[in-house]
Write a protein that binds this DNA or RNA. Structure first.
Length: 103
DNA sequence: CCGTTGACCAGGC
DNA sequence: GGCCTGGCCAACG
């Protein structure tokens, strides 16, 4: 543990703090860890299926799910989100206005 | 140190 | 409205 690998652990730490029933965007997380590049967020989560890391709560700034989501596609992600009480506007778009995470 | 990669974002055509 | 390019910067070989 500890901030060993830098952003890798840092980003994972933030994602773990996302409350149930909330979602957040890559850009938002990027700001939290002190960076300006949202790609690092996705990059850090890539291949990470840790049960403590709800990657399915991490979506794009427009509320769309990541189309390159690896753990089964956005359809799997959507199913998990709905299970937590998240509302969907479209098949692959979350209602950000209601569920975007704010500290 | 260098080149490549990368689940994004914004701008241009 | 879809595709391309640039940017931005950490991790990895």
């Amino acid at each position: 543990m500890n901030e060993a690998t830098g952003l890798f652990v840092k980003i994972r730490n933030v994602v773990k703090q996302i409350p149930l029933g909330k979602v957040t965007t890559y850009g938002q997380i990027a700001k939290m860890v002190g960076i300006t590049d949202s790609r690092k967020v996705g990059w850090a989560l890539w291949g990470n299926q840790d049960p403590q890391i709800p990657c399915h709560r991490v979506i794009k700034k427009d509320g769309f799910l990541a189309k390159d989501y690896s753990l089964g596609g956005w359809e799997e992600q959507k199913r998990r989100l709905q299970k937590e009480g998240i509302s969907f506007i479209k098949e692959n778009q979350v209602d950000l206005e209601k569920h975007q995470w704010v500290c």
